[in-house]
């Protein structure tokens, strides 16, 4: 498969992170892996850019973090979705669907 541009659409990283945390708490690398896996390798998160986004989301109160131990017995900081984060995810998803629907309509127009 031809490699897609790695850049995400501006402003969507927050939504993708929230989505990746929907079911289980994950650490930074886990989140990057999850997004890559869910997008079937189309989306690759530049891992460095993950942390600014994570701290931003944490400051907003949408995710919380605590130290835990990873599968291979390493210390890692695990992020978990809060209920406010769940609401935010739903809102961002709605917004995204509405926007993409609009864009699709424009692109499909004669």
């Amino acid at each position: 498969m031809a490699k897609e541009k790695p850049d995400l659409v501006y402003g969507t990283l927050d939504m993708l992170i929230l989505k990746a945390l929907q079911h289980d708490p994950r650490h930074g690398l886990g989140i990057a892996d999850r997004i890559q896996q869910m997008s079937k390798d189309i989306l690759r998160v530049e891992q460095g850019s993950l942390y600014p986004a994570l701290y931003r989301l944490e400051a907003q109160g949408w995710i919380t973090a605590e130290w835990g131990v990873s599968d291979n017995n390493r210390k890692a900081r695990y992020y978990k979705l809060t209920s406010a984060g769940r609401k935010q995810l739903a809102a961002e998803k709605d917004h995204w669907l509405r926007i993409t629907k609009g864009i699709d309509l424009v692109l499909a127009g004669a």
Partner: peptide, 28 residues
């Protein structure tokens, strides 16, 4: 509040951030 709190124990927070990123790189 989170930002305000983040302001004071700056070195501790920075250390934590460095530790977290180091852990990420170690995993990689």
């Amino acid at each position: 509040f989170s930002r305000l709190l983040g302001l004071f124990p700056k070195s501790r927070r920075d250390a934590e951030m460095a530790e977290e990123m180091q852990a990420h790189v170690d995993l990689l």
